[in-house]
Structure formats: C-alpha cells, structure tokens
Write a protein that binds this DNA or RNA. Structure first.
Lengths: 327, 327
DNA sequence: CTGTTAGCGCCTTCAC
DNA sequence: GTGAAGGCGCTAACAG
C-alpha cells in the first residue's frame, strides 16, 4: 500500500505539498507539481478513499434501500437511480432493511434513496435527524432532510377507470394489492374515487400480494363465489397475469366476457394472451427524478419537498382495445 | 455527531476503555462496562464506520461489478449474491465499470464479484495485484487472489443438442450471442462439439446481441436467405423469443415446422406461444456460490480456484416436448 | 483492569 | 511556494 507519504518522499517534498499538488489546490510551482505527479505515477499511487472520507466527512456514496430486486418492476428503476447518481460522481450501495441502520448511522453514506414500504417512518425520522438527506419513493412524508418523489398512482387508476367506462363496462371488480404499500393504496384510492364519481360501486373487491400466484388464487376465489364482473381492474401487472390464467381455466374469454387491466407495464404485459392493457410506470424517469432530488439535497440546494411522476395508459387487447395499439 | 470521546467523557473513562467496553474486547470491569454502555445509549452513540475502517483496514463491503441490471437474468442472481454476503455481515456495493477502478484502488472494498465481459483481464490482474480478492463469474482466469465460479454452459448445450437429436431433428441452426461473452462462447462450443460428435454440421449460424430484437432480426434474415432448418438453437432465451416472433410472421409453425430452444430459463420462457424449451440456469445457486467463494477468500481460507455450477434441461412445447412438462 | 500514547492516510490551517 | 503540525474517530500496543 503506497501512501501520500511515499509519494512525498520520492518527490522530496512534504506530504502537504504532495497533497496540494495532486489536488490542484493552492498554488504549487509547476516544477514541484510535475515532480509529484511523476512520483505518484511511478509508485502507482492511488488516494485512499476511506482516509479521505474520514477527513472530508463525505463518502461519495449513497444508499438505495429497497425490499429486493426480485420483481420485474425494480431492475430498470434501480439502474436509472444508479446511472443518475454516477453522473454526479456518486456511488450507489444497495441495501436492504437489516443493514440500513448501520450504514446510515455509521455515516457510510452521504444520503439515501428509499423504496421499501415496511421501513417504519420512525426509522426514517431518526436517520433524517442525524442530518442525512433522503428521498423516499413510496410514501408522503414531511420532515426536514426528506423529500418524496412519487408516482401518480391515483391519476393512473382514474384514467384506467375512465377507459373501462368509456368502453361501456359497468360491473368492475377490484383486484388489489397489499395495504402496506403506498402505491397499492393510492391505486385503490384512485379506482374507488373515479368509480364513485361516476355514480357506480365496484362489483367486488379482493386483496392479493401483488404476485402472479396471488392474482390467480384471488380470481379463482372470486369466480368460485359466483361473481361475474365485466372487468377486472388489477392493481399491478403480475396480479393481472394471474387473473388471466384463472379466467382461462374457467373458460371465460378476455376481453369479450371479462376485460382485464393491469398496472406497471412490465415486459410480460406485451406477451400475455391477450396482451395486457395497463398503466405504464416510467421507471427510468422515476428513478432519475429521485436521484436528482437527492443530489440537489446533498448539494445543499433547496428543492420541492415533493414531486409527482406522471403515468400513461397503454391500451392493448385485454380491455378490448383495438389490436395493434400499445405496440 | 457524537463520538467515542464524548461517550468516554460522559462515562468518565478514557477513550480506549470506552472502545474496549463497547467492543467486549479485553476484560473490562462489569461496572465500567455498564457505565459506558449507559453513556453510549444516553448519547445515542453510534460508531463511525469510516473511522473504524481506516483503522481496521476492512470496510466490510464488497463490490459487485456488472454491466447493468437491465436483463431478466441478473436480478435474481444479484439478489442472491447480496443475501449471501449479508449473511456474513458484508455489504454489497453495486458498481459498473467506470467506478470499479476507483472503488478498488481506493480500498473502498474488501473484495469484489465480477460479471462483466467487457472488463479486460488486465484490469482484474491489476486489482488482484493490489491484494484484493475477487471472484469472476464470466471467465476462466488463473491468477492469485482470483477464483472463478462458472456455469456449465457446455454441458447445457450438449444436453440440448442431445434432446433435439433424440427427437429426430437433424438440420439445426445456431442463433448465437456476442463473441465477447464467455457464456456465449461456451454455449457455442458445446453446441458445435455435440453436433460434430454426432457426425453432423449445423445448417446455418447467425450471431446476435442476445436481445429479443436481435433474435428477431437474425431469424428474419435467416429465413429471407432461404434457410429452412428444422430447429433453431438460440443461445439465450431473449433471442429465442425474438426467433419465435420471426417464425410466426413467416407463418412457420413451432414446433411442427421448426423447433426452437433457448438458454437461461427466464420467466418469460413460460409465457411464450408455444412455451420455450430451454436450459435452466440456477441463478440463485450461482450467485450464492460466487459470494461464498469470496467470503472464503476474504477469510484467508484456501478454496478451489474454479468451480462449476450445473444447469438443467427444461422441456416445453417449443421443441415438441409433450405439453405439461416443465411446468 | 484502566489510562496514555501512537498512529491508520489524508487534508488544511498556519507559519516560514 | 513550501513545510510542520494537528486532527478526523477509532483501535491496539504498552504501561501502570
């Protein structure tokens, strides 16, 4: 391990001078600067990030707290967060709940992006109180050092309901997600609000866990119970995929007997039979916006405490939209 | 920011004593230990990881170098690597090529797992030479501080070829991936070896970029050129999905006119029409094995320089396997 | 058992 | 323009 001291010795200057020279800081004579640079190169010197961080009180690293990359929704978004941070010279460390406290409290991180519903507000408040800027993507939260970058889930649900109603469908069933998820709750809010504004009530409501399996089971149960909605509004695509399977088993035609819609626009949505009408969540833009917000906070600039990312309806055959649309 | 010094002062002991007490190190009298613990709690003290790392010369963090989480193959594997490392008290920092040198040279990392074909061997050698243990998942490499954990790509290809031949298919075309990918090259090796051992030659060979789009274009080209293979051996699933689309466009039936096989067993493979026969890559086991190998290296234990992870044939309808198999 | 001392590698006043 | 000294927060000898 070659340190600045070694470089200084080789260049026959004091460590401080070597430091200044390498960091282009104060005025150092061109001659010494060159000697130092040369010595550094000769020794293959590389600054020790940890030592530097200790001194600067900045690690150039931000954490991304999430529940797991498992789902098809996250990958692109995480990538986007990473890339955006990288553009600003920041590294990203992926962390799950167990490590989060240690990482933040230990000041291993300069800041964090959070997308993990189970994490309690209290923990976020604690971390924020220790003066660590954060951006949350899965809840509204008013607190110093904390900003929210959220999806317009309600808007998406409303648009979807409007689409279904416009197609003349009236008996809509809601196949929902976990109540501990912000996105899930807001999607539900939008659905119910839109429906009641139209003077309607849902035919049925079931709750699932946002998985394909969960969707299949829920819809099987629904059908077994004798319900015959004209449309299933599923709160995410994976659930909708399960719903399609359950309907196929029962010999019900989609969309002629029952229309099905999802939410997220995962890749799979273009491959189901029929292809799935859904709400596109702009994952790249979402992640980038979150990262940018954090960068601003780190720079000490003031930014809106809350930002909303728009979503977009994607019409395909599962809701009876004309074939060929929605690629 | 409350430091050990504050705790020591509050507990009326020396910093070193406080350190010992909190880390349960040397024998400290129960009374002092308690006083220190209490002071720490009262002050809401948390050790500063960076300072600790500087001293210990260990960051408890390992890097995962990859090309991007984009693809459907990576998510599960990365997750598995992460979880395995977490079990050993290590954090994982995801890094892409541009940041890798800085992170390793700056000793921000204790070690690294590498899965990124474009990264030159030379860089890995440099890093290894700086005494950083690494595990590579995408190349064979003999070098101190470096071990390989690889997929049995050849075995998978051979098994697949055997399956196709057993179904009586003879005119096989190879739809390959990028030549700079280790997995891609090995899959090709296995295919050609198995075929030539059977005394056969491929009908055609095309190269793609492992994407769906690439597969579609390649197969379109193949068909436009007048080729009429009885089976398309695609070197990954995404390519195979593209191939299925191209065949559908041409009105060719799968598997009756042309059989199609993939490699990886991504989720999508169960949803194509017909469902895709492929080689299952055990992503969780693969990631875990890589992580374990790194942990062993970090602990200074000697481990085999190379380990191979087995793969498994998954028969579905696209190769004419009886429906109902392969879930 | 506890305190004193000496760094880890770097950066940054502050004199010269 | 350059060097000496101090300290970031923590740990590990070594004394007492």
């Amino acid at each position: 391990m070659v340190s600045l001291k070694d470089v200084a010795r080789k260049a026959k200057v004091a460590v401080s001078t070597a430091s200044l020279a390498l960091n282009n800081k104060s005025r150092v004579s061109p001659a010494t600067r060159r000697r130092v640079a040369e010595a550094a190169r000769a020794l293959d010197y590389y600054p020790h990030s940890i030592a530097r961080s200790l001194k600067n009180r900045r690690t150039q690293t931000v954490g991304f707290l999430m529940g797991g990359f498992g789902g098809p929704v996250y990958a692109e978004m995480v990538q986007s967060v990473h890339d955006t941070l990288a553009k600003h010279g920041l590294d990203m460390i992926v962390c799950f709940a167990p490590a989060f406290g240690r990482l933040t409290h230990g000041r291993m991180l300069d800041g964090a992006v959070v997308l993990d519903a189970p994490t309690p507000n209290r923990l976020l408040e604690q971390v924020a109180a220790r003066d660590m800027p954060m951006v949350v993507m899965d809840r509204e939260f008013r607190c110093p050092n904390l900003r929210s970058v959220l999806l317009d889930n309600q808007g998406g649900s409303r648009a979807m309901v409007a689409h279904l109603l416009a197609r003349g469908l009236r008996d809509l069933a809601y196949v929902g997600g976990p109540k501990d998820s912000y996105d899930s709750r807001r999607r539900r809010d939008g659905f119910f609000a839109a429906l009641s504004e139209a003077g309607l009530e849902p035919t049925a409501e079931v709750v699932t866990d946002f998985t394909e399996q969960g969707g299949r089971d829920a819809v099987r149960g629904l059908l077994a119970g004798g319900a015959r909605p004209r449309a299933l509004f599923c709160a995410n695509d994976e659930t909708a995929v399960g719903a399609l399977q359950a309907l196929a088993e029962s010999g019900l035609a989609v969309p002629d007997d029952v229309a099905v819609t999802g939410f997220d626009d995962i890749e799979l949505a273009r491959y189901t039979t029929p292809r799935l009408t859904t709400v596109r969540v702009p994952r790249v833009a979402w992640g980038a916006a979150a990262a940018e917000a954090l960068v601003e906070s780190l720079a000490g600039r003031t930014t809106p405490a809350r930002r909303t990312i728009g979503v977009e309806l994607v019409l395909r055959e599962s809701s009876g939209a004309p074939a060929g649309e929605g690629r």
